[in-house]
Design a protein around this nucleic acid. Structure first.
Lengths: 144, 144
DNA sequence: TTCACGATTTCGAATAATACGATATCGGAC
DNA sequence: GTCCGATATCGTATTATTCGAAATCGTGAA
């Protein structure tokens, strides 16, 4: 199943990152096919799974996309009854995104599946490798 | 510039991966705006930068996408004169994708920029962290 | 030699992803 | 009160992605 480690090349980290992302998105889509949600819908619900309401800007920052990208994603989630949009108290420009009951259920399935995939893929790796992974991701996310 | 390390949560690796990918794609797009190439065109050229011709299937495996996804990407690159498509010797079903001179130049700019970004973001991290990053990516890419 | 089956790539169609520029509204500082 | 930046969405356009179908091809078994 698992092939040998591919030696990294200079500048290859970003290519490997994109490849791994594509691979995991395929895997996630397969395992969550019953939910009938798009990758971005899954991502948004997963980020909201902690039950904390967020503005569109906050959610965008969490997933790494601009608010305008999220408009249609949230339209579909709202239509499915998974999230509500409300005016945020104290700032009527902002829209508060919150999970509904069905959204919480979907989010729970999603986070369980993500945790399962993660455990299966990374369970045999030393904790230092996983810590290094997170350090690199953080460095890449904040570079610029 | 760089904020504090965010503590990872169970199942959070895949979310962090997607977020980092979005962040780096934004950064890459900004730094390579003069090339006027889409993210997938950049990714394809970067994967071909070693000068080795590849079939559509091979390129798809490298970037983590299906061949059919690459059809329009390669159409555009071919139209821009950056790649050629030819019949592969020994198997006429396969199409060989090769860089042209202009494709090689573009690929060189891309790999230089990717290496630069990588060095700026990761240069201060210990080599073990970067090695751990690659180990995790490999594990995720081959899981399933 | 023939045939069946899987491999290869593209096509056409559909949905999703992404962002730009514009818009309307809002909030805060002066 | 005014000005400027913030917020989210709209409309638009391009790109990303895949499915199913199609045509062609290559290989192995009978």
């Amino acid at each position: 199943m698992k092939s040998e480690i591919v030696p990294p090349s200079v500048g290859g980290a970003l290519l490997a990152l994109q490849r791994a992302t594509h691979a995991t998105l395929h895997l996630i889509a397969t395992e969550l096919v019953d939910l009938d949600l798009s990758p971005s819908e899954i991502n948004a619900l997963a980020n909201l799974a902690d039950g904390v309401g967020r503005t569109v800007s906050q959610l965008g920052a969490a997933v790494g996309a601009k608010p305008t990208t999220l408009t249609s994603v949230l339209d579909r989630l709202e239509r499915r009854g998974h999230v509500t949009r409300s005016t945020r108290a104290g700032d009527r420009r902002s829209v508060l995104i919150e999970l509904t009951d069905s959204g919480r259920e979907a989010a729970a399935v999603i986070t369980r599946t993500l945790a399962d995939i993660e455990h299966r893929a990374l369970g045999a790796l030393p904790p230092e490798a996983v810590a290094g992974f997170h350090a690199v991701l953080n460095a890449l996310t904040t570079e610029g």
